[in-house]
């Protein structure tokens, strides 16, 4: 056995032993009481936002305005990237080979399963951990495996382009802004939830605006990240031989 591996193993076991003994000797106390702030959220979230999931309630209701601006920042970053990369679809159309048959066939199935799970994450965001951003990111995982496996050119041929995806993202964000703005019409504050939106529709719990935000945010994140992945897959040759200043 080489000396390097031996040293690494010794270091690893020493770290394990030290952390175990430290945990036993120091015995860090787990808090037995909730802090005032936590208590407030535990007791009031369900009444004030009609959502049992406090994290989503904080993100889209208590500090909703903050989250909406955050979404805008990511949108601008993606549009900026698109401007810098000067998406030329001709360059991408040349990449059309992709990986082997086994990878292609299994990716088709896996992408479908990932998208189903992503939808479950996004639609249950106001009921259980999850929400628009994690759901949309999970969809982006599906598209990020599809792009290298089938080659970006194949996607462009099927009519999926960065420009279209950014347009979808723009539409989703506009709708999201409208959901935030609509309560103003009735003289309420911006990003109002329960005073304006119903807690349930036909007996199905939707927690007012929370599920709408989650749905639109997942659409925006999924299309945004797919657009990024698409323009990052422009082959290097497309830039080589260009006019260098």
């Amino acid at each position: 056995m080489s000396r390097r591996i031996l040293v690494l193993m010794l270091l690893f076991s020493a770290t394990l032993i030290v952390s175990f003994t430290a945990t036993i000797i120091l015995n860090p106390a787990t808090p037995s009481e909730l802090k005032e702030l936590a208590k407030y959220y535990v007791l009031n979230t369900i009444n004030e936002t009609a959502s049992p999931e406090a994290v989503t309630a904080i993100v889209w209701d208590y500090r909703g305005l903050d989250t909406i601006y955050e979404t805008l920042v990511l949108y601008l970053a993606i549009v900026g990237g698109l401007a810098i990369f000067k998406m030329s679809e001709e360059a991408l159309l040349k990449t059309r080979i992709g990986l082997t048959l086994l990878t292609k066939t299994s990716t088709k199935i896996i992408a479908l399963l990932i998208t189903s799970i992503a939808a479950a994450i996004a639609f249950h965001g106001h009921l259980s951990p999850g929400g628009g951003f994690p759901g949309g990111s999970a969809v982006a995982v599906a598209s990020m495996i599809i792009i290298p496996v089938f080659a970006a050119g194949t996607l462009i041929e099927k009519g999926i382009s960065s420009t279209k995806l950014v347009a979808i993202r723009g539409a989703a964000l506009t709708a999201l802004g409208l959901v935030a703005l609509l309560p103003v019409v009735r003289g309420l504050e911006i990003v109002t939830n329960q005073k304006f939106y119903p807690a349930s529709i036909l007996g199905l719990p939707i927690s007012g605006s929370l599920s709408l935000y989650n749905l639109l945010e997942s659409l925006a994140v999924a299309s945004g990240f797919t657009a990024v992945a698409l323009y990052l897959s422009i082959p290097e040759e497309a830039y080589k031989g260009g006019s260098s200043a």
Binding site: L113, S116, I117, A119, A120, I121, F123, H124, L127, S128, G203, L204, P205, I206
Partner: peptide
């Protein structure tokens, strides 16, 4: 897949 991942059979799911 959706229902088993969500882990519930509520009308909403």
């Amino acid at each position: 897949v959706y229902v088993s991942f969500a882990g519930s059979t509520s009308p909403y799911t």
